[in-house]
Design a protein around this nucleic acid. Structure first.
Lengths: 135, 135
DNA sequence: ACAAATGATACTACTGTGGTATCATTATGC
DNA sequence: GCATAATGATACCACAGTAGTATCATTTGT
């Protein structure tokens, strides 16, 4: 069971790297070398980030990527949402028919608690925060 | 993303039902009717619970299942372990090579926090607790 | 002996994750 | 203006986990 999948993780690392370059255009090849992420997989991830408006892309020689918004405003939870969908810990188990069995309601509350705690912890986490520029 | 899979959930419901019967032998067919769980799937789950020593089984006419240990000592986390393996929120993402990138360490700490909170919340939860007999 | 229950085991379908491969498009520098 | 170096778009593939089915063997009460 994992909170964060590999593509989200790779996205975070790539964005941290790009953020640290502070305005310097970073090509996929550079990221591949530095972060040891399989090239085509990383490219796909970067393209998604571009489509979602997190990165700007530049084609041609000397091209690559730049943050489209400041690192302080790129939130982990948004990245999770992009690659994994809405953050939920009780996906489709209980939500369909609201508790067919009363027993599990109790359990559901516990899970909701945990989810809320997780959200509270994760909500403020941004790329800036992960590279030590915030908090 | 889900904390608890369907088989764990079904196991919980079945155990709650059996616990409420207080010593009365419960057959799979009865559980199928009451809990609306697909019969062969439920049977498989019950067999696992029997092998793991959570349930005792009785063959033949009038046979079925009984709790092998008191409901107070059947813990949710043990059931999770049986059906999903050890409870971990950062499965195999970071543990292999400890943080290839220093950036993610920060993130890893957050996830560990969440996991610890989740464990603290879930550890005391037993079948007895879920049917309202404890706490 | 028969029927009603579980035991054991093997198989199937679907979905999400983690990728790969290919071709099209755009921009730069000579 | 052409080669080249970059990204864009898209389709495909392999594997593992989840969810569930199917079948036959065994035990037990009447």
């Amino acid at each position: 069971m994992k909170l964060i999948t590999r593509d989200t993780d790779y996205a975070v690392r790539a964005l941290c790297f790009i953020a640290k370059k502070r305005g310097e255009i970073v090509a996929a090849s550079q990221l591949v070398k530095e972060l040891k992420i399989p090239r085509p997989f990383l490219r796909k991830i970067l393209q998604v980030l571009n489509r979602k408006g997190v990165l700007n892309s530049y084609k041609g020689i000397g091209g690559g990527f730049l943050l489209a918004i400041p690192a302080e405003r790129i939130y982990l939870l948004d990245l999770v949402k992009i690659f994994q969908g809405q953050f939920k810990l009780n996906d489709c188990l209980f939500k369909k028919k609201i508790c067919p069995n009363i027993n599990t309601c109790n359990l559901r509350k516990k899970i909701m608690n945990i989810q809320n705690y997780a959200l509270k912890e994760l909500r403020p986490v941004s790329i800036a925060c992960l590279i030590g520029r915030r908090k």
